[in-house]
Design a binder for these strands. Structure first.
Length: 260
DNA sequence: CATCTACCGAAC
DNA sequence: TTCGGTAGAT
């Protein structure tokens, strides 16, 4: 919003959030516990950081640099997956435009501050979107993968199948997500970490790769991210940080970003 | 196994 | 011209 507030949707709820010296002040159509749940205010981030520092003291400066970071817990894995489908090989401004474009295909759910807010479109709706329509909206080659990925999810059982991945072992759920068109190892790990509650998933993007190579594998710096090296980073994080591996990734990611 | 290239727009 | 995940070829 122009006034610095943030207006957004998660699943079937909208939130209008402002920062104040006393903390977050917000309006929403959801019960009061919904935003704290979305931002994991019910979790003890300081304890997470203590776990990180106990396992890796060299994370000290990164933990300090990542102060204020929240790892979100979005409610709908479908919404999460298709938003992440927009992020591959892409920049933030364009991602935002694409996500808003997808959202506009969903059912209107509220009118807030003059903005019409929409639920994220259903899998059926996404599967039926003509590729040319998305091309015209600037989706580029993702215009083809988005409807195909929606079709692939429907073939496997739709939303129930997707939500069921939260109960499967992480490695198995990762393999299942890789079968979706346009979803590679990084996007699969993002969906596992944020939407499916697999807190030991470690998405490796360009920033995490750079930070990891600098700190732990200097010989890899000018090499490419192969499937083997990708997996090795996640395994190393899980061996070192256990259930905090995903949080360690978040801290590494944000500290790298903020150092640029 | 790893490396290369195409994909599409944005930013340099 | 470089950047950035995925997919397919080599």
């Amino acid at each position: 919003m122009p006034d610095g507030r943030w207006l957004g949707v998660d699943g079937d709820a909208w939130f209008l959030v402002a920062e104040s010296p006393e903390g977050l002040v917000y309006e929403s159509d959801a019960p009061p516990e919904r935003l704290p749940a979305l931002l994991r205010f019910d979790e003890d981030v300081e304890a997470w950081n203590r776990d990180l520092l106990a396992a890796a003291p060299e994370f000290g400066p990164r933990v300090a640099a990542a102060r204020g970071l929240r790892m979100m817990r979005p409610s709908d894995p479908v919404e999460e997956a298709f938003c992440f489908l927009c992020t591959s090989n892409n920049h933030l401004a364009r991602i935002g435009a694409m996500v808003r474009s997808l959202a506009s295909l969903g059912e209107p759910m509220a009118e807030v501050q003059g903005h019409t807010l929409h639920r994220f479109p259903t899998l059926e709706r996404l599967a039926a979107v003509p590729e040319p329509a998305l091309r015209a909206q600037g989706f580029g080659y993702r215009a083809a993968t988005i409807p195909r990925a929606a079709e692939a999810v429907l073939t496997r059982g739709g939303l129930d199948w997707f939500q069921g991945l939260a109960q499967r072992p992480r490695a198995e759920a990762h393999r299942a997500l890789l079968e979706l068109p346009g979803v590679g190892p990084k996007l699969a790990d993002c969906v596992l970490l944020f939407a499916l509650g697999h807190l030991d998933a470690v998405p490796v993007d360009t920033h995490v790769w750079r930070g990891y190579c600098t700190a732990y594998e200097p010989d890899w710096t000018y090499k490419s991210v192969t499937a083997r090296r990708y997996a090795a980073i996640g395994d190393a994080f899980r061996a070192r940080f256990g259930r905090r591996a995903g949080w360690a990734q978040q801290v590494l990611f944000v500290s790298e970003l903020r150092a640029r």
